[in-house]
Design a protein around this nucleic acid. Structure first.
Length: 208
DNA sequence: CGGCTGATGATCT
DNA sequence: GATCATCAGCCGG
């Protein structure tokens, strides 16, 4: 596996959200490699009320305004870190939230950082995966295409199918279908009805 | 399984 | 002072 090159990343944030499925997020520290296959993402776009960059640049969200491929890591709900990949040209402000991973390497080390029993619960949520991999505010602004500790790696096997739904946990712009996930992955977050793909029927997108 | 709730602290108004 | 891109545990069916 090698680093993803910036030139490989789609220039459009929504395309990036889909592109990142099946790629790997890697943490190399203390001689140990933690890695996971990205199975769920959400796009936060230019002009999107739910995007942290919507109201302009502040000390907190500055990393969203770095050119695509940089980490935007922020702290929320008093306990959790969330990680995004910036998605546009410099100064624009958009990104992709990494919502779930399929643990690949360093599973024992990740389990040690998490107070949870089943491997399936290790990284199936945005706050869970950062805890499992030790991603915190120190990694805010890191260039994921060049960094030696935290980086994006090429995919291993192909993505079988991609499902989509509304984004999770939002109040503003809650109706937009900008969440993407590997349809048959058991490592995706959220309730099952959000994760089901209707299949080859007239409708597209989940019910409700 | 789905639904609800308390915890917890930075950020911005 | 309200809000928040969450989580784990608990409860009922």
């Amino acid at each position: 596996m090698r680093h993803l090159r910036r030139s490989e990343l789609p220039v459009d944030t929504e395309e990036l959200a889909k592109f990142l499925l099946g790629k790997q997020l890697v943490m190399d520290r203390f001689g140990i490699r933690l890695s996971g296959r990205i199975v769920e993402t959400e796009a936060y776009l230019i002009g999107d009320e739910a995007c942290h960059a919507f109201r302009g640049e502040t000390p907190r969200n500055g990393s969203l305004f770095l050119r695509r491929g940089h980490a935007y890591v922020y702290f929320i709900y008093g306990s959790y870190f969330m990680m995004n990949v910036s998605g546009e040209a410099a100064a624009l402000g958009a990104g992709v939230l990494i919502r779930a991973l399929e643990p690949i390497q360093g599973i024992a080390a990740m389990a040690r950082r998490r107070r949870v029993k089943r491997v399936a619960d290790l990284t199936n949520g945005p706050g869970k995966l950062t805890a499992a991999m030790g991603i915190d505010a120190r990694f805010d602004g890191v260039d994921l295409c060049t960094d030696k500790r935290l980086w994006l790696g090429t995919g291993t096997r192909a993505v079988r199918g991609v499902g989509s739904s509304v984004r999770i946990g939002l109040t503003r712009a809650a109706e937009r279908t900008l969440r993407f996930f590997e349809s048959d992955s058991p490592f995706v977050s959220g309730p099952r009805w959000l994760n089901s793909t209707p299949g080859p029927s007239p409708k597209s997108g989940p019910e409700r």
